[in-house]
């Protein structure tokens, strides 16, 4: 309890100030204070993005003018035009590649993981726990550790510089199996038992009883798989070589060449990379945040 006294002493100045304030106003002042702090931090979050957006509409020479002109006086679409109508850095192409990879990977992951999770959660078969332990074991091993054998494997399969090099390794993620299994376990067995008595096979139980019950979990898993794929950089960096097959992150990076650091174009590129995700995030905020709190998804 010594600690407590110390704390009391330390905090007494705070109490003194507090006592001086009229209790009626106390609540209001503390609320205002909280808002002030939250707004300042919120601005720290927002300002870099606003700067990016504003710079992307500026001529090269105006970008670094100080004080900052938040709303460009001579807005130009030149930067966007030059990156969209550029043969080498075609951002439309990059978008399509990222989208294709993210969608295929997410779909494949949902299908294979939800099925495997069903086997682990609802079916009995010899070696089940051992196999599951194997899954759990690889959970700890990040991509960074296995990227070398994976590169050699992908190379042996002649898939280097194809979208499959990015889709396949992510399509069977152990984490998806683990997460969905946890959710399946939460569904009472009575539900499926009843269906079984009605003569349903396992596939129907899986598709018609289990899956609809874990929709939020699947939505969360989809969102984060998609996001992770969309934002991933190291994998494309290793596996993708041709400009026409690059994803948005790798495309953005290669766009900054040794001899031309043109911040207007770079900011137009980053805007294009960031904006769709932010828009989707604001629309589907519920799934992002509640899903995240629900499942404690990996960072």
């Amino acid at each position: 309890m010594e600690n407590k006294d110390k704390v009391l002493q330390e905090e007494s100045w705070f109490e003194k100030i507090k006592e001086k304030i009229d209790p009626k106003h106390r609540k209001l002042i503390s609320k205002l204070l909280i808002h002030a702090i939250l707004i300042v931090i919120g601005l720290c979050m927002l300002i870099p993005f606003l700067w990016m957006l504003s710079a992307s509409f500026k001529e090269e020479l105006e970008i670094f003018k100080f004080p900052i002109e938040w709303i460009p006086s001579n807005p130009t679409l030149k930067n966007y035009a030059s990156i969209f109508f550029n043969e080498k850095y075609n951002f439309g192409r990059f978008y399509w590649n990222s989208l294709e990879i993210a969608i295929l990977m997410t779909l494949a992951q949902i299908v294979t993981c939800s099925m495997a999770a069903y086997a682990f959660a609802k079916l009995e078969f010899p070696g089940r726990d051992k196999i599951f332990l194997g899954y759990l074991g690889t959970l700890m091993v990040p991509f960074h550790v296995t990227m070398i054998p994976l590169f050699i494997l992908i190379k042996a399969m002649k898939l280097v510089d194809t979208p499959w090099a990015l889709i396949l390794p992510g399509a069977f993620d152990a984490y998806g199996v683990f997460l969905l299994r946890q959710f399946y376990l939460g569904i009472p067995n009575e539900l499926s038992e009843a269906a079984k008595i009605d003569g349903c096979g396992h596939f129907r139980i899986y598709a018609q009883i289990i899956l609809p019950n874990v929709k939020p979990a699947i939505a969360t898993l989809s969102i984060f798989t998609f996001l992770w794929s969309w934002n991933n950089f190291l994998k494309p960096l290793i596996f993708i070589n041709s400009p026409e097959k690059m994803t948005i992150t790798l495309g953005l990076k290669t766009f900054v060449s040794e001899y031309n650091v043109e911040f207007g174009k770079i900011m137009a590129g980053t805007t294009l990379a960031v904006l769709p995700v932010i828009i989707v995030f604001f629309i589907a905020q519920r799934y992002f945040i509640e899903g995240l709190a629900l499942s404690g998804i990996k960072g």
Binding site: V111, T112, C113, M115, A116, Y118, A119, F120, L123, E124, F125, P126, R128, I131, G134, Y135, G137, T138, V141, V145, T146, I148, P149, L150, I152, L153, L168, P169, A171, F172, D173, A174, V177, G201, H202, F203, Y206
Partner: peptide, 30 residues
């Protein structure tokens, strides 16, 4: 039921063994 279980597991476990499990083992060996 065992057969069904393996069928459910199959699509995932093939990929899992190839793209997750094998690389972990291989990383140590290499």
């Amino acid at each position: 039921e065992i057969l069904t279980a393996y069928l459910f597991l199959l699509p995932n476990i093939i990929g899992f063994l190839l793209f997750s499990f094998f690389p972990v083992v291989a990383a140590f060996i290499i």
